[in-house]
Design a protein around this nucleic acid. Structure first.
Lengths: 329, 329
DNA sequence: GAAACTATTGTGAGCGCTAACAAGATGTGA
DNA sequence: TCACATCTTGTTAGCGCTCACAATAGTTTC
């Protein structure tokens, strides 16, 4: 591999001048710059990241700590993060968590510290992730996706509470009075936030908020709960914590002869690409995960490069109406 | 950050001895080792990756070049890759492709070369990816997932042709004689391989192989084709290139009053977690993507560390039967 | 026309680590 | 006992780069 020195020899300048060209320093004459650039092209020179990192004490790498990477939300957030990071000249390193817990998070963070990442984006949507991160007291900026952040850690989230509220308010506007919620696990921030939004909307409307069932995000849990519900359905509408559980629920209702939306309306959350092809097509709440990811990196780079303090990013979701909702009979 | 030297001072040895301890060199007395380890713990010493990389000329990083990262298959392959790589002490860097093409691949590869990765796993399931990679003639080992590899590039794939064959042979065994195929795009390796397997099975059985329709992997394309098919259905069974298209197809059939499996049997491909909750639950071909990812890293590390040559990995898929298939009426 | 600036280029040191070699300590057999 | 091997530790150089500073050339100001 050619070095700065080799380029310098060919261009007839010092290694430092080559370094200036490579780093876009202002005080280089255009004649010199051209000579150097020609030499760089001729040799196929590439700056050695390790040597550069050694002296700058920056790795130009951002670590992404993720669980549930095969889920629609985290995967797309990762895409946004990657795009913004690469555009800004950063590398993106990942560590996937198989099970979520203090130790697994700590292991992954250690891995990133070994790599000397310049910042960490955390894509672990559990309620106590933020706490664990604060305890670890990391020497680099951290953005926790799915939380509002704290004094030490930046947050970036879709306003799920608001999304849930919008969905439920729509059902109320359609005339529904008994609206249940199939929530995700309460120890997931998404699960509890969406449940809160559901409750907020019902309370504001003076409606009962006692029909709450807990799933685990999977289609299987939606199916199981759907079978139980179908046996003695009291609600005319159900707000479901994510699209996958809604899929399972629809399946269970279909088997039990419960008609959607005639007997019961169903609203999901996420708007994954398949949601429009469920039976029936699912009304749901759309979240722009890529945007969320991009904004994480914006905030992170401000912390890394401009020394900015922690920030709190909020992205607003949007209700998408399809055939699974209708006014009650 | 403490350096090797700092640890050496506290332990009362030379920096080189500390280096030996850190790198598990054999010839260090246990007394010395203990002193050094105590000093390391006391200071919270961490080896500086940049300095190490500079002298070893290894970055301990594997690049993963991926498109379609929000899809079930690539996402789970990535998980397998990450697990195996981290277990082996490697970092995993990612670059996601927004659109697939020579230039995008070349950009991402350049990004990895800037980072001096030790190897690249390519998760871009297009037919001409392999060609592009060969042309780039990379100075590090490359494993192309979804291809059989070539003289210069290792391959790792699920035996999709065989998976398709198994699925279609099952339909034939059930008594189906007109079996159509809704394929993915033919310029995707997965698309053409699965179509080949479908054709193989039909030809071997002396059945017609002229009912081939092309989708684009999305539920939407499955839906569109489903609507067309429903109008004048001649097949009694359909083998669909992936589960998402099958979902759209099922939706279209439901709308058109075509009963699955009474009027037509449907088999998908992938076995994504939701497939069992479609209406009806989908028979499909299961692929172990994580295993595939892990084996990619095994092969890659053999190339990097043992100087092994290119290899070709094949993982066998498995047919999962659910309610969407039945003997013809 | 000398002093004071600015723009451009070069020199030397050192980031933290590992590899190669050197040297001391310990043990072994004749 | 000495010559030789073996185990353990230390010394030195250098990986490729950027930073701080020095030096030169060109320009302006009074």
């Amino acid at each position: 591999m050619p070095r700065l020195e080799d380029v310098a020899d060919i261009a007839g300048v010092s290694h430092q001048t080559v370094s200036r060209v490579v780093n876009n320093h202002p005080n280089v004459s255009s004649a010199t710059r051209e000579k150097v650039e020609a030499a760089i092209a001729q040799l196929g020179y590439r700056r050695n990241t390790a040597a550069r990192s050694l002296v700058t004490r920056r790795s130009q790498t951002i670590g992404v700590l993720a669980s549930e990477l095969s889920q629609y939300g985290p995967a797309n957030t990762l895409l946004g993060v990657e795009q913004a990071a690469r555009d800004a000249g950063y590398f993106v390193s990942i560590a996937a968590l198989r099970e979520v817990g203090r130790e697994a998070i700590s292991d992954a963070v250690n891995h990133f510290m070994d790599q000397a990442v310049d910042g960490i984006v955390v894509l672990v949507p559990h309620a106590d992730t933020l706490l664990t991160l604060e305890e670890l007291n990391l020497p680099v900026p951290v953005v926790a996706v799915g939380s509002a952040g704290s004094g030490a850690v930046s947050g970036a989230m879709v306003d799920q509470r608001r999304g849930a509220r919008i969905a439920v308010e729509h059902l109320i506007a359609q005339g529904h009075r008994r609206i249940g919620h199939l929530s995700g696990p309460p120890d997931w921030t998404d699960g509890s936030e969406r449940a809160e939004g559901w409750r907020d909307a019902l309370r504001d409307a003076g409606l009962p908020d006692n029909l709450l069932l807990e799933g685990d995000w999977s289609a299987g849990s939606g199916y199981g709960i759907g079978r139980t519900l179908a046996a003695g359905l009291t609600a005319t509408a159900l707000f479901v914590g994510n699209d996958q559980m809604a899929l399972g629920l629809l399946r269970a209702f279909a088997e039990a002869g419960v008609k959607v939306p005639d007997d019961v309306s169903v609203v999901g959350f996420d708007d994954q690409p398949e949601a429009g092809y469920f039976t029936p097509p699912l009304s749901t709440v759309r979240q722009d995960f890529e945007e969320l990811g991009r904004r994480c990196i914006d905030a992170m780079l401000k912390e890394i490069e401009a020394g900015a303090g922690v920030s709190s990013i909020v992205v607003t979701p949007e209700l998408v109406l399809r055939a699974s909702t209708a006014p009650p009979a």
